Amino acid sequence: MRLILRHRVLRGKLTKGYHSFYLDIYRDGKREYESLGVIANPKDKANYRSALQFCQDILAKRQLELKGIAAGIKTPVYGKGDFIVYCEELGKKITNKKSQENWGDAVKSLQSFEPEGIDVSLIDREWLERYQGFLLAQYSQNTARSYSTKIRQAVSRAVQDGYIAENPNKQVRQIPELEGEIKYLYVEEIMLLDKTPHRHKGRKTAFLFNCFVPLRSGDLEVLTESNIRPAAGGGFEVYFRQSKKQRIESIPISKQGMVYLNQARELARTRYGRDLNADDPIFDIGHKKRYGSMLKTWAQRAYERYGKELPQEIRFHFSWASKEISPHWARHTGATMLLNAGASLEAVGEILGHIDRKTTMRYAKIHPQTKRSTIAMMPTFRNNNDSADT
């Protein structure tokens, strides 16, 4: 089989002089054609070069498939049901474990929507609208957006690979992100957790450390000794690549954070039976669902034992927070404590790795005592109705 990229000159009124690209295919002495669905105006040099490069990429891909067949390698043919296979293959190329899990969840949502599979040629505007509608009916808005984002990435890649002629992503609006409520703990509640025992000391220590060093839980899970280094101004900092956005970040470790870090190191030495190597994970968190379940058990125990010690407003907060607490609360807690302590939005945003300061503003929650002392600043005076009321 032999492939040649060719074009023909169009003669229509609106496209006169334009080039329409196709593949000339010679197979077993017979000649076939495959239209690439690409039309370009040679007078528009920039767009013409882009269109030509796109067609050449498709030709190169077809030629690689032919070489694979000649070598006895089975190459995928994306027929009925194989858009899901295509998405699965893309997921296998992801190296980050967390991102790979998220991609797998998105593919599962696609399998639920198309249990019998979907021909890649049927991926169009109408299909994408129906898929996003299905996601919104089955999942929360932000989860639906997350899954949609990944499948839309697969659609764009299929367009680049020449399996889809027109990109429906340009015609269908992405599901908007819904701003979620920031949930956190007060420092008084953290103090109760600190003195409340739990048999899984590794998870307890990890959460408390995370409250004072606001990493994302995914970054905390893989933190090693190689990520801890001396800071320029004294003390130590966490130096790492974010798992979510793959940016290099550094976060100074607070004094209280160092207390919990050293506790975690001691637990790790016991766990490994030796001193820590540079690439040994420091924190023993385990499966995220078990981690979340452990936090609820631990927090409810703290409330039952020591809840009466809290001021009324905080006690009410901890009564429901102890039942809803999750690993993400630690990062939220750290940011909120910094802002309540008087840290600037710019500094906290830098620590959290936020680009937009509006994102950091979501963490600006005021402590109940601060609210009371602020309201107490209101002026008071005796009004004319005081005597009538007494």
Rank of each mutant, 00 (worst) to 15 (best):
K93Y: 12
P115N: 01
D105R: 09
A106R: 01
V85E: 02
K74F: 03
K92D: 12
S50W: 13
Y139D: 12
G72S: 07
A144W: 04
K93H: 06
K67T: 14
F113A: 11
A106I: 04
R145G: 10
Q138I: 14
L136M: 04
Q153M: 10
G72V: 14
Q138K: 15
R130H: 10
L110P: 07
V120F: 02
E114W: 05
A106G: 02
I69T: 01
A51R: 07
V77G: 10
R130N: 14
S109K: 15
D119F: 03
D44Y: 11
K97C: 03
R62F: 02
Q111I: 04
R125C: 01
I58D: 06
Y139R: 13
S50I: 15
G68E: 06
I69Q: 08
G117T: 09
A51Q: 11
V77L: 14
G104Q: 13
K150F: 13
K150P: 03
F134Y: 14
V107M: 03
S99C: 01
V77N: 13
V120A: 07
R62M: 00
R49N: 13
Y147D: 02
G72W: 08
G117S: 04
E114F: 03
E101S: 07
W103S: 04
L64V: 10
K108Y: 06
C87Y: 05
G117V: 04
F113M: 11
K97N: 09
Q153G: 10
C87E: 14
Q132F: 04
L66A: 05
Q100I: 00
L128Q: 11
Y139L: 15
Y147F: 05
V77I: 14
Y86T: 11
E114M: 05
W103T: 04
S50C: 12
T95Y: 02
E126L: 01
G68S: 02
C87G: 08
E126P: 00
Q132W: 04
L64D: 10
A46I: 07
D82I: 10
G133M: 12
D119W: 00
S148Y: 05
D57A: 03
V85K: 07
L64F: 07
K45R: 02
K61T: 03
F54Y: 12
K92W: 14
K61I: 06
N96E: 07
D119L: 01
S109L: 08
A60K: 15
E89F: 04
I151W: 08
A60T: 15
G104F: 00
Q63K: 13
C87S: 14
K74S: 13
S140D: 10
P115W: 00
Y147I: 08
T95N: 03
S109I: 11
A137D: 13
R130A: 12
I123L: 01
K45N: 00
I58A: 08
T143M: 13
Q111P: 02
E116D: 11
I84S: 03
G117N: 09
V107A: 06
G79I: 11
Q53I: 12
S140W: 08
A70W: 11
K98Y: 10
L135V: 13
I84C: 06
P115A: 00
N102D: 12
I94M: 04
K45D: 03
S121N: 07
K108M: 11
Q56D: 12
K45Y: 01
Q132L: 00
S112V: 05
P42H: 12
G117C: 03
P42L: 11
L136D: 01
R152V: 06
G68V: 00
C55A: 05
Y131V: 07
Q63D: 11
L52N: 01
N47Q: 13
I151C: 07
L52S: 09
S146W: 06
G81Y: 10
